[in-house]
């Protein structure tokens, strides 16, 4: 069975290690915070200027001045701090943020990513994504393996305007966990009940399969 969005987030949460400062993008990445182990220390950064983000506020306690980059009302946890936008991207560029998790429309086998524009159709802007992918050392992409028409989104070359070049390290989709290597997408794990053959059929880019591929462990 292919994973749902929460299960993708749950699998990615396993990549979050003790002592990490983490930036979460909008969409599936935001859900990752719900599945991070409670026995480790992690701080979430939001590029609009907060470190130490907490859960949504209780009803009636929303503060218009405390939001995340998705413009959602949030709370802060003990140890949190606020800063301006230039400072926020300073800590991203200088690689103080250990892990960046974001969504994508397409990823290429060389690690290129496209997630900000569909020419003639959708132009919302890149927000902070270009800064994040150009600077982060450790980038995990949460995405669907195929689009609604069944076409692969893991390609030899991206067809959409790029957000960044050669930057994606790891991808978690509804079908698999993959690593971007110099030879192409290396299959690390398959979703429970998903065959290697299914992953192969859903991947347009070069897929490297070495030995037995383990099934993802979600719990």
């Amino acid at each position: 069975m292919a994973l749902d969005k929460n299960q993708i987030a749950k699998r990615i949460a396993k990549e979050v290690k003790d002592g990490y400062y983490v930036n979460l993008g909008i969409g599936i990445p935001t859900l990752v915070a719900n599945f991070v182990r409670e026995d480790i220390s992690v701080e979430f950064q939001s590029e609009n200027g907060v470190l130490g983000m907490g859960p949504f506020p209780f009803e009636g306690e929303e503060d218009a001045d405390i939001i995340n980059a998705g413009k959602q009302t949030i709370t802060t946890l003990p140890g949190a701090s606020f800063f301006d936008s230039a400072f926020s991207f300073g800590m991203i560029r200088s690689q103080k943020v250990d892990l960046t998790i974001l969504g994508a429309m397409e990823v290429a086998e060389n690690g290129d990513i496209a997630n900000w524009k569909i020419p003639g159709k959708m132009v919302k802007g890149m927000g902070g994504a270009m800064d994040l992918v150009a600077s982060a050392e450790n980038i995990i992409v949460a995405m669907m393996h195929v689009n609604k028409a069944g076409e692969s989104k893991l390609l030899k070359r991206c067809s959409l305007p790029l957000t960044g070049v050669g930057c994606v390290k790891k991808i978690v989709t509804e079908l698999a966990v993959l690593e971007v290597t110099s030879e192409g997408f290396k299959l690390l794990e398959t979703a429970p009940g998903v065959t290697v053959e299914e992953v192969k059929n859903a991947t347009e880019g070069t897929l490297i399969i070495e030995g037995d591929i383990p099934e993802m462990i979600l719990d």
Partner: peptide, 12 residues
Amino acid sequence: EKRIEQRTTRKR
């Protein structure tokens, strides 16, 4: 007015 764009909350 300080309008909130995405009012997200959790239940008590």
